[in-house]
Write a protein that binds this DNA or RNA. Structure first.
Lengths: 326, 326
DNA sequence: TTTGTAATGTCAACCGCTTGACATTTGTAA
DNA sequence: TTACAAATGTCAAGCGGTTGACATTACAAA
């Protein structure tokens, strides 16, 4: 591959001029720019990004750490983050932590070694913040992991409220809250639960909560818990689930056991992943503004330095009504 | 961040020695290695990967180009690829092309500028091969895009055959094939169709195929096509779908229109994405060996140079029987 | 003509690490 | 002792671009 030097030689200018054209817009005359452009295309030149980054001491990489790439919610996060990263001329370095703390640390170290412009973390390690020194900005999405790390989330409290209110409005008398994993979602998902509890209490009812120790991202893992829970509480006619997969599992279990949905049991999911619309019956859910969250996180990193990082940013959610609460 | 030089100074050796320790295992005495290790950890040192790659003229990046990150099949590809890439000390540079040819080209150019060790492409541009010059290996997964590009696929012909055979064995008399997009899957998905047709003909039946111009990755997009097709062919009692989402849509439509599944209509999907097990009824499908494919692709890149690249590699598929054909 | 300014050129150091060539030191086997 | 090998050191160029400091050139305005 051609180098800057060769381009300069072919265009009859010096490397300095070529470099200036690349880095200081407006400093080089249009005529010269034209000549250099020609030389570049003749040689099929692309600046070596490694050299460039080395020299500038910062790359155009943005690291994204997610616990899973396969889970639909995070897949959406990846999709959106990639879109905004690329749209701004940056590149995505994807890291899948699988919830392993060690992996998260290793990824951080790796990202540091690559002089990334910033990192977006959608994984959960609480103590990461304290132990990692990083000159680049770190953004946490969907959960608050440290007072020192800027968080960008959706309005979980309200999401929980909306879900519960919707079920009440639909006539449910006994509404449960099923969570797919307290540990994982950390402080934020518990806000959803709080929202649910607030509303239930405001209507003079008793909250009924079933928490699972850890999130089981992939399908078919909640079945046993659901079975136990439903048989212990046969009077439930409404359920708020902390994610859509859990909701789907619940519906699946109900249908398989002679409980009609939404007839006897109405279900609200959370996240609004593609599955929610596709399921039969389609699932009413709380739509997370993944796109807004990702755009904000990416742009915060890109404009870091000229703009301060807010310690936390919250985007609104909305309820999408579908068949499961019809 | 500390540099090699500082580490060397602290350890009382020269940069050459430190570099040797890093790059030529066994060349430095254990005692010295120990001293250097100590210095490194004292300084919290991590070699600057950019400098390293620049010097070596190759990075440890592997580019992965997928059309979508959100589609469950590709999400699985991403997950598996990432796993094998990281397990080997490489890093994933994720590129989402959204089926846009220009983006694919741009990504290639970008990857080249980063001196990636290789690229795995799960996207479809046929002419990419001819127009891109690349010194690093390129692996195409799940489709053959050029005789010059090594392809690693699953046994699509057999997959199509197995699906059709399964339905016949279950007693279906009129079996259709629904495809989610000819263009996209290219030569390989049409192999699935061929497999289906072979089996149908071998049993003295007539193939009935419904193709869609383009893949609609995200849910809820096939509905109109399905409606038209099913009402034009009310006698269908079995369907082979070219992907699980299409299968889910079909089931959803059938259930919503008084057609029982699997009672009146048996459905086989393709890919075995998580959704297949989660759906109600769960979906019988052809399991794609995504893990094997990804592992092979990644290792081919990593060992490129010492091992030749096969022009094509095919892994077997298997049928996973679930409720939709019960 | 003088002067100012925009456009380039010249030179060279620097980013942090790698590596080849060759010299030196030290321990060990002959 | 001698000699060889292993372990390090020394030196310096190179990877490809960036950038600051200054010098030069050319053209336009005063």
């Amino acid at each position: 591959m051609a180098t800057l030097k060769e381009v300069a030689a072919l265009a009859g200018v010096t490397v300095t001029t070529v470099s200036r054209m690349l880095n200081k817009p407006g400093m080089v005359s249009p005529a010269t720019v034209q000549r250099i452009r020609q030389a570049m295309s003749d040689l099929d030149y692309r600046p070596n990004e490694l050299a460039r980054s080395l020299s500038k001491k910062t790359s155009h990489f943005i690291g994204l750490i997610v616990p899973s790439a396969r889970n639909a919610f995070f897949a959406k996060v990846i999709e959106r983050a990639e879109r905004h990263i690329t749209a701004n001329g940056f590149k995505l370095l994807l890291c899948v932590s699988n919830h392993e703390r060690k992996k998260e640390f290793d990824y951080f170290s790796m990202l540091k070694a690559h002089k990334v412009a910033g990192v977006i973390i959608a994984s959960h390690t609480q103590d990461l913040a304290e132990s990692v020194s990083f000159d680049a900005p770190i953004l946490s999405i969907d959960r608050v992991i440290s007072p020192h790390i800027s968080a960008v989330c959706s309005d979980n409290l309200n999401g929980g409220r909306m879900a519960a209110e919707h079920l009440i409005q639909k006539g449910c008398k006994r509404i449960a809250y099923l969570s797919g994993g307290v540990m994982l979602r950390g402080m934020n998902a518990s806000l959803r639960q709080q929202g649910y509890e607030q509303v239930i209490r405001e209507h003079g009812m008793q909250p009924l909560v079933q928490l699972n120790r850890e999130d089981r991202f992939i399908s078919m893992k909640y079945e046993d818990i659901i079975a136990t829970f439903l048989s212990a509480h046969p009077d439930i006619d409404g359920a708020v689930c902390s994610n859509d997969i859990l909701a789907a599992e619940l519906i699946r279990y109900a249908l398989g056991n002679g409980i009609s949905v939404p007839g006897q049991l109405k279900v609200v999911g959370y996240d609004d992943i593609d599955l929610a619309a596709l399921y039969s019956p389609s699932i009413t859910t709380i739509h997370q503004p993944v796109n807004d969250i990702c755009r904000f996180a990416v742009e915060s990193i890109i404009h870091f330095g000229s703009r301060p990082l807010p310690s936390s940013t919250v985007f609104p959610v909305r309820l999408v009504e579908r068949e499961s609460t019809g």
